[in-house]
Computed example of a mutant assay.
Amino acid sequence: SSTSSSTSTTTTTSSTTTSSSSSTTSSTTTTTTTTTSSSSTTSSTAVRTATSTTTSTTTTTSVTTATTATTPAPPAYYCPGTSIGAYCNVTSDTCSMSQPCLNAATCFPDATVPLGYRCGCQTGYTGSTCENDERLCKDDTCWNNGTCIEVNSTTVDNNGTTFYCNCSESFTGVHCELKVNLCVNITCQNHGICQTVNMSWSCICLTPSLYYGNYCEIQTSALKVKQALSKSFASVAIVALVLTCLFVIIMDVLKYVFKIDPVKAERLKQLRAKKAAKLKPKAPNVAIRFQYVA
């Protein structure tokens, strides 16, 4: 019958389609010519299409499974190379993370050494991290704002150093530790004090109201007036003392040499007054009686 012929033809077509595409085309042509009704032909074509789709899907799934097994998927938050961090923006090498090199040294990652890095030190620094400062001119080599200058070892001066301190004004010495004293040969008058300031000397007068000048040798007007008054009072006192002495000497000369006593009459007068006071009768003693009345 037409139904059984269509079924057998469909079976043959399915097997032929799996083996090769050319057999499928041939089988499809045969089925179309032997089928008598349009409905049975449509059913056979639908079955063939479903079978072909299933076979293709199975093949693709097999290829995908094989590919997955060969190349594993990367883990979450995976950073390429030596980068770390949530955004892979941090380098994990020792130089970038700990920055171990000191004194402006350059750090180089090096896996061949135990520390994992090596430091390129600046001139004058040594040590694994350039921590040793062996420079001749350090920050504290020259004092008092002096400038340190390294010199050639063949031109070492008498103090045995290989550096030279260019000292600022008013200082000298190997390390600019000595202050220049320009007051060695300067003598300030009237108790003035000499000081060295900015490579020049000056006398500081202790009493500027009395003395001034480069050596405190000039007297002020106020001092001159005081001195004049002092001399005047001294002169008056001296004159008075001299006159007193002359008076005493003259009186003694008159009395003992010329037997002239200018004060004899006055002296006798005083003696008579004393005698008269002694001879004057005293007032009689009067008894006074007191009576108390109750």
Rank of each mutant, 00 (worst) to 15 (best):
A73P: 15
A105G: 13
C119K: 08
P75V: 13
R135K: 10
T71P: 03
W143Y: 05
Y78L: 08
I84F: 08
G81K: 14
K138Q: 14
N132R: 11
R135E: 08
D93G: 09
P109T: 03
P75Q: 13
P80V: 08
G146L: 02
T70Y: 10
V156P: 00
D93T: 05
V113C: 06
Y87N: 15
P109S: 09
A111R: 11
E134Y: 12
L102Q: 15
I84V: 13
T154I: 08
G85D: 10
S128K: 11
G81I: 10
D157V: 01
D93F: 07
C130P: 13
Q122S: 14
G146W: 00
P80K: 14
P74H: 07
E131T: 11
V90Y: 05
Q99H: 11
L115V: 07
C107A: 00
D140K: 13
A104D: 15
M97F: 04
S92P: 00
C142D: 05
Y77V: 08
Y117K: 09
P72F: 09
T147G: 00
Q122A: 06
V156D: 03
P72K: 12
N152F: 03
A86D: 14
D110Q: 01
Q122C: 12
N103Q: 13
S98H: 10
L102C: 02
L115Y: 06
C137S: 07
V90P: 01
L136A: 03
P72Y: 05
T141P: 09
S128A: 07
A111I: 12
C88P: 07
N103G: 04
P100F: 03
G81W: 06
C107Q: 03
T91C: 14
Q99T: 12
N89R: 02
C148T: 05
T155P: 00
C142F: 05
C79G: 09
P114N: 10
D110M: 10
P100L: 01
T82F: 01
N103P: 07
T91L: 08
T154W: 09
N145S: 14
E150G: 03
T129E: 04
T155I: 10
T91E: 11
Q122E: 12
G127R: 00
P75C: 00
F108G: 08
S83R: 15
V90T: 13
T129Y: 05
R135P: 00
S92A: 09
L115R: 15
G116A: 02
L136I: 04
C137W: 00
N89C: 07
C79F: 06
D133T: 07
A104W: 02
P80Y: 08
T82L: 06
